[in-house]
Design a protein around this nucleic acid. Structure first.
Lengths: 205, 205
DNA sequence: CAAACAATCCCTTAAAAACAGGATTTTTAT
DNA sequence: ATAAAAATCCTGTTTTTAAGGGATTGTTTG
C-alpha cells in the first residue's frame, strides 16, 4: 500500500524540491500540492492523503491554525510541520494542534523518508535539532501584562515620556509611573532600554 | 555558451528544488552546490560559475558578508540573493555588496530563469515583491555610526547605564554620555526608548 | 460574596539621562 | 603632511526614570 503524500507550502522551490525527492520513491504516492490554506482545505474535500507536509507560514493562514482545522475535520490524516524555524513555540504549538512530526527545511532525504515512515505508523517524528529545542525548553518567559500596561508600553516605545503619556491617556503622571514600574518588574529588567529590547524580541511591539 | 550556475544554501530541499528545475534547462549548466560559506569559497578556488544563487542565512556566515567577499575576489561572478524574507535591509545590503539580483524563495521557474538571464547580461533583477519593498521604503535613513558608537549602542541595549559602560570600556562616563548624545542626534530621536526601537528595526542590534 | 486583579493616584529620594556648549588628543585617509 | 573624522574628556543645568513605600476605587471571577 502506497503512502499518499500532499504538501502545503507557498514556496515553489520547496515544493519542487520535495516532489523531485519523493516522486520516484517506492511506496510513496505524490498527490500534489497547495500553496495556501484554502486550496488545501478544498483539496481535502475530494482526496484523502495519508500524510500532509505543512509549512508554518502560509499567505492566508498560519500552518498552526490550519493544522488544528485539518485534524478536527480529518483526524485520520497525519501532519508533519515543515519550517525553516527551529523555534520552541512553533514546534510545541504544532504538536499541541495534532501534528505528528516537525521537520526542518534543511532535512535530508533520509530524514524526510524516516519522518513519513514514522508518522504513518502512528509515531511522532521530530528533526534532531527540533527535538533538542523542545527538550531544552528554552522558555522565553513571556510576561503577562494588562491591556493598559501594553498601551503604555507602546507609547514608551514611541519615545513618549511619562508626562506625554499621561496627557495622551488623560491620566496622572504618577499612574503612568506605576504602570512603567510594573512593566519593569514583570519583564525583570531595570531600565527602559532593556524593556524595549525585550518587548521587541518577544514581538510585543 | 552555457550559463554556469552554482548555489549556496543550507536547505537541502531548496537545492534539490532548484536543481530539479534548472537541470535540464537549455543553456544552463548546473555546477553543484555548497551548504555553507566556507565550502563555497573553497569551490570558487577551482571553478568559475557565471551566476551564484546565494541564500541570506547560512550556518557559518551570513550571505550578505559572503556576497561582499565573493565579489571582492571574483568580481566577474554574478550573485543573486535568495531568501524567503522580503525585507528592505536585506535587499539593500545585498545590492550594496555587489549582488545583481534578489529572488524570493516562492518565485516561479520563469522568474528564476528571467533573473539568471538578466544578471548574466549585466542587468539587475529583483522579484516584483522585492522591488516593491525597495521602492516603498525609500528613505529608511540608516544613520552612519562609528565603531565605538555601535559598541556603546549594544551595551545600552543590554541594559547597561553610562556608568556601567564607562567601567566596561575603561573610559570616562562623560565620554559615554557624548557617544550617547551623538547616537540620539544621528538617529534623530530624543530618548533611549526610541533609540533602541529604531536600532532594532534597522537590525543594528 | 470575598479575594484577586486592574487601574487609578500620591509622596520621597536617588539615580540616570538629556541638553547645552565646549576642548583636546588620536586615528584615518587624501 | 595635513585635514577630517573619531574618540576622548570637561562643567553645568534640567528633565526624566527608578525604587521604595503606600492607598483607593472599581471589576472580575471562583
Amino acid at each position: 500500500m502506497n503512502t499518499k503524500i500532499f504538501i502545503v507550502d507557498d514556496h515553489y522551490m520547496i515544493i519542487e524540491g520535495i516532489r523531485s525527492l519523493l516522486q520516484f520513491q517506492k511506496g510513496i504516492e505524490w498527490m500534489g500540492h497547495a500553496m495556501n490554506a484554502s486550496s488545501c482545505m478544498a483539496f481535502l474535500k475530494q482526496h484523502e492523503p495519508d500524510v500532509i507536509l505543512m509549512d508554518i507560514s502560509l499567505p492566508d493562514k498560519n500552518g498552526i491554525d490550519l493544522c488544528k482545522e485539518v485534524k478536527t475535520k480529518y483526524p485520520e490524516t497525519h501532519i508533519i510541520g515543515l519550517s525553516s524555524f527551529n523555534q520552541h513555540s512553533f514546534i510545541q504549538k504544532m504538536l499541541d494542534n495534532g501534528a505528528s512530526g516537525y521537520v526542518l527545511k534543511n532535512a535530508t532525504l533520509e530524514e524526510l523518508l524516516n519522518a513519513i515512515e514514522k508518522v504513518v505508523h502512528g509515531k511522532i517524528f521530530l528533526s534532531p535539532e527540533a527535538e533538542l529545542t523542545l527538550e531544552k525548553n528554552e522558555n522565553p518567559i513571556i510576561p503577562v501584562i494588562t491591556r493598559r500596561e501594553k498601551e503604555v508600553l507602546l507609547l514608551i516605545a514611541n519615545g513618549m515620556t511619562n508626562n506625554d503619556i499621561a496627557l495622551k491617556l488623560f491620566i496622572s503622571t504618577t499612574t503612568v509611573e506605576t504602570h512603567r514600574k510594573n512593566l519593569l518588574t514583570k519583564f525583570e529588567v531595570k531600565n527602559t532600554a532593556s524593556l524595549i529590547r525585550m518587548a521587541t524580541q518577544l514581538q510585543l511591539i
